[in-house]
Write a protein that binds this DNA or RNA. Structure first.
Length: 396
DNA sequence: AATCCACAGGAAGTGCTGGGCG
DNA sequence: CGCCCAGCACTTCCTGTGGATT
């Protein structure tokens, strides 16, 4: 075992990194290659704010890791530099703040209005937000990132409120930027919200392998010392990410992880082998982490699916899962939930990407869902095993 | 052509938590 | 203090349905 001193020494002596931060997900670079078009369009839409008039609301679509957030933050930063005090923006991530209340509370906080993190009626928070806005006399641009998360769970109350908020304001104006990676998202919205929110729309296409390679090369030049990347590493990472819908964030993740592994080993080059291991580790960590934090009955349901898969059952249906689940539940001496609930849990697991569920009609033999495990069985097992109750079930 | 299975999934409600407010 | 509020995990009750079999 290395002593603390040794660990730190080795870190300082790192051959690999020049500036590791440049690979972290929240770093917004000075240059965003292959997004010139989107930057120009967003800037054009937001420009009126400089002269004190309210920019149109914008809706931004694009899959994960296509630069939506980076471009938005980049343009807003530039806008604020030019506009000085008259324009402000708030960035709210609706995945972390995934309830109406939390989004409004975030908004209030950015206005310097105090709200408790629970307890108030929604209408009361809205009032406070309004008051805060009036006091500030600004153009406020509200960015709602991953806004589909909010609407799917809570409806579009908050969006409705925000899209009409200007009617109640004298001294301030609000513009909205909604960001989503769900291309069918608009269908969920109330017609009134839809028309007001969709004043401008911006689409971010996925990066292709060549573009990813270009981006990675530029970023690598900032982050790594010269010559530490083995031939073909960047090409490989770009190819992997290109297959995953051109997800640039994933590409950067893998590159960082590969470099970390190499660094930890004291290697002086990042090799293709490191990339391979990084990819595996990221995949595994992702599933293990979501599983760890799941509520008990969700874990039990997943365990049931896992066991059925392990016993190589050909077509796994909702009914089979429910039976297996009840079996598991009785083993640990807990009361089962209803099949209706399990049906919802199966959908939740599907949305998390751990399983694949599709409705299928088997004619005379009913209409049900056919389910298969889509995460690797070993990661599922690893994730479940972190729970002691689950561990005994899987071994028993 | 009608039937009927094995569920899907909507609507409404319950009980609990963790926190207001007056 | 009593009452209200939102969110969550869940229940109860329900209507709907694709298509192989009768």
């Amino acid at each position: 075992m290395a002593s603390v001193e040794e660990i730190f020494e080795r870190y300082l002596a790192s051959r690999i990194f020049k500036d590791r931060e440049k690979l972290l997900p929240d770093y917004v670079p000075e240059n965003l290659p292959h997004r010139d078009e989107q930057i120009r369009r967003l800037a054009t839409v937001l420009a009126p704010a400089l002269l004190g008039s309210r920019p149109s609301n914008v809706f931004i679509y694009g899959l994960t890791g296509t630069g939506k957030t980076a471009v938005t933050k980049y343009v807003l930063r530039k806008l604020k530099e030019k506009a000085k005090a008259r324009v402000e923006y708030v960035y709210i991530n609706c995945r972390q703040n995934n309830t109406s209340y939390r989004v409004l509370a975030e908004l209030a906080k950015s206005l310097g209005v105090k709200v408790p993190f629970t307890g108030l009626a929604l209408g009361e928070v809205m009032k406070r937000v309004l008051r805060g806005l009036e006091r500030r006399r600004r153009i406020l641009i509200v960015v709602l990132d991953e806004v589909d998360n909010l609407v799917k769970r809570n409806g579009d109350d908050v969006l409705y409120f925000l899209s009409r908020i200007n009617e109640q304001l004298e001294n301030s104006r609000v513009s909205l930027i909604g960001i989503t990676n769900d291309l069918k998202f608009m269908e969920f919205l109330d017609a009134r919200v839809k028309s007001s929110l969709g004043e401008e729309e911006l689409v971010f296409p996925p990066y292709n392998a060549i573009q990813l390679e270009d981006i990675l090369r530029k970023r690598a030049a900032e982050a790594f010392n010269e010559g530490v990347l083995e031939e073909g590493v960047i090409k490989r990472v770009a190819a992997i990410a290109a297959r995953q819908n051109g997800d640039c964030r994933l590409a950067l993740d893998i590159l960082l992880k590969a470099a970390d592994i190499a660094d930890r080993e004291g290697a002086d080059k990042v090799t293709l082998g490191h990339v391979e291991r990084a990819r595996h580790e990221i995949e595994k960590n992702l599933t293990v982490d979501v599983i760890k934090t799941m509520p008990l009955h969700v874990k039990l349901t997943l365990a049931a699916i896992y066991l059925l898969t392990r016993d190589s059952v050909k077509t796994i249906t909702t009914g089979l899962i429910y039976n297996k689940y009840k079996e598991l539940v009785s083993k640990v001496g807990i009361e089962p939930v209803t099949q209706r609930r399990i049906s919802d849990i199966i959908n939740e697991l599907d949305m998390l990407g751990l399983i694949n569920a599709r409705v299928v009609s088997m004619g005379r033999y009913g209409r049900t869902k056919v389910i298969s495990l889509s995460a690797s069985a070993s990661s599922v097992k690893a994730g479940l095993s972190s729970d002691l109750i689950m561990k005994t079930i899987l071994e028993g």
